[in-house]
Design a protein around this nucleic acid. Sequence first.
DNA 1: CCAAAAGTGTTATGCTTACACCCATGT
DNA 2: ACATGGGTGTAAGCATAACACTTTTGG
Lengths: 197, 197
Amino acid sequence: MLEDRTSHAVIAVVLRAREGKIEALLAAAERGSGTLEAALAKAVDVSLLAHVEQLETRLLGSGDLGTAYLGLARAEAPLGGTWVPVDRARELSRDDAALVAVAQARLRAKLSYTNIGFALAPLCFTLSELREIYVAALGHDVSATNLQRVLLRRGVLERVDGRREPGRTGGRPAALFRFASQSLEVTDEFAALRPPR
Amino acid sequence: MLEDRTSHAVIAVVLRAREGKIEALLAAAERGSGTLEAALAKAVDVSLLAHVEQLETRLLGSGDLGTAYLGLARAEAPLGGTWVPVDRARELSRDDAALVAVAQARLRAKLSYTNIGFALAPLCFTLSELREIYVAALGHDVSATNLQRVLLRRGVLERVDGRREPGRTGGRPAALFRFASQSLEVTDEFAALRPPR
DNA sequence: CCAAAAGTGTTATGCTTACACCCATGT
DNA sequence: ACATGGGTGTAAGCATAACACTTTTGG
């Protein structure tokens, strides 16, 4: 006899940084009897995501089970669908709004102790451009000066040859940087209680 | 027509600290059509856990879906079942061993930036006793001196009246402490990129 | 020459670690 | 007295934040 089972949806919560704002794209797919990754791939083109990690599993308002994944995409990734600025997430369904909040919180936390910015920034960028992404994701001001020093010191950023030409308004040409690694790495593991040397 | 669906298990991975070691207790229950919390409660007596949080959802070796929860229990909690020291987790099934590893990693990480120790320590304890728990969970030596200063500075610990009498071998009586809060709190949110004052 | 944007130098601050030293108790 | 376990004082190390100042460009 078959039991009474709810169905299982896999939900992609994709975030990107564009024009000083974080935007979210939501997409879901039924899992059926396959793997979680296969269902996620049905929901969204995973090859366009620079980073993916599981967020949480919860019972949705529909009564179905939902497993949400956080996806991060670069601004230029050609991901179709309805992108919603996260400051208007309240216009989404209750479930979707909650998932966007969880995704945002995860991103914020990891920005401070990992290299996760690589998944939002273009491959090559100026420090001002990177700063704009951090400001959007963290929701507070960030000094470009100190951002540079922190990330260079940790070995997260590398200089790239060449400079960005200034715009019409002038200004010194900006140096170009890239992330040293394109996969998630914890760069500041323990704030306290470090293992003894 | 009913689809081909796998069943959904909720798995409790309970950790406790005993005699300088971290031990794990694994228990699972079918979710059926109820909530995740209800299934967790079928697997383990949740009222004996000092802290619970979701770990991850994955496809188990059996082909079933499994959602794992981390539970933390105090050493004296009367939780029956087979407790396995985590350094012998490899004797468990592949799935169980992997879940224990994830649980341990989550505990380790949170020990450094939250008050999560409250869920493993007794309500009242000496600093040496707390140190033993941290050493067991972190896997490296911890100085009682510095542990005290870090946790007091953060407001995580509070002094309690009275002292612990020394044992037969003598020694100065130890001061007693308790955790200021019995629910999870992030006490050291950002190592870097703090919001400006 | 001035405004704008980027980058560097320098200092101050705060938290953590390391370690020497002092305290209280049993034998 | 001395061993043992507990606690405090102090200094050093290190990363970050703050901010003044310099560099490089366009108009």
